[in-house]
Amino acid sequence: MVTLTRWGDAAPGAAAVAPWPARLCGRAMRCSSACRGAAVSLRLAGGEVHGAATHPDLALLAAVQEETGEGPCAEATRSLRTVVAADLVAEPRWPVFRVAALERGLRSCAAVPVAAEGAVMTVTLYAFRPWRLAAAEAEVVRGLAAEAVAGLVGDGARAAAEAEAAQLRAAMVSRAVIDQALGIVMHLLDCDAADAFGVLRVLSQRTNRKLNAVAARLVRERGRGATRELRRLLGEVRDGR
């Protein structure tokens, strides 16, 4: 089982930013035959932390580290170096984490961090007996984490590009509608573009509706029945100059 969580939540189960951390947990566990559980922590550039774990107890240990600032994952995230605790019984570091881990039957752990584009992803592996992650195994875990970070960065870049494109399309549509409405007002009132825009702006303020909504209605109705009101507003625009 893989538990997805935002480490600051009251209980595991909140959706993570992407499926990458969950997939990484399972893949990282298989890098060492002694490993019996894994947790992934992803700290984004803005400071928000998300993660995944293969067991709820490991999600709770991740939350303990986030709250106290101590533990293998917390230290690896800060130092960007692999942190190993071969036997937690004899481990002098991280007293709060050490007790919490031993209470859950864990004896050893190793945390491997990877940083990219302002984000840090740290994979922490756990075992029920004294154990030290081999250098070759750590490199495999690091490669998997780097692949996951690259995927997250790529997903974020694509999402940002798609959002920007959608905004540009919406702006172009809105601008086209406003231009059409200006043409209608200029034709009905025999005025220039500046006066026509002033009429639309005043109409927007009087009706408490956005300019593009006012323009869309004028275009939809082709200005029918609105000439008298538009002419009155034109007078106000010109008088206000």
Rank of each mutant, 00 (worst) to 15 (best):
residue 224 R to N: 01
residue 99 V to S: 12
residue 214 V to A: 02
residue 210 K to W: 06
residue 120 V to P: 14
residue 139 E to L: 15
residue 36 R to T: 14
residue 145 A to Q: 06
residue 201 R to W: 14
residue 26 G to L: 15
residue 78 R to D: 03
residue 145 A to F: 02
residue 152 L to C: 08
residue 9 D to W: 11
residue 28 A to E: 03
residue 95 P to M: 11
residue 178 I to G: 01
residue 24 L to D: 06
residue 142 R to E: 10
residue 175 R to I: 07
residue 69 G to A: 08
residue 100 A to C: 11
residue 198 G to W: 10
residue 60 L to N: 09
residue 199 V to R: 06
residue 25 C to H: 10
residue 114 V to R: 10
residue 219 V to Q: 08
residue 235 G to S: 01
residue 158 R to Q: 11
residue 224 R to H: 04
residue 83 V to A: 05
residue 112 V to M: 03
residue 181 A to N: 03
residue 203 L to S: 09
residue 211 L to S: 09
residue 192 D to Y: 08
residue 48 E to N: 02
residue 237 V to F: 04
residue 88 L to S: 07
residue 101 A to R: 05
residue 126 Y to C: 06
residue 50 H to G: 07
residue 134 A to F: 02
residue 162 E to S: 07
residue 18 A to Q: 01
residue 92 P to G: 03
residue 5 T to H: 14
residue 121 M to T: 08
residue 7 W to S: 00
residue 93 R to H: 11
residue 73 C to K: 00
residue 29 M to E: 11
residue 48 E to F: 08
residue 219 V to K: 09
residue 180 Q to L: 14
residue 102 L to H: 08
residue 94 W to Q: 04
residue 2 V to G: 00
residue 199 V to T: 04
residue 45 A to H: 02
residue 39 A to Y: 11
residue 65 Q to Y: 07
residue 171 A to L: 07
residue 150 A to S: 07
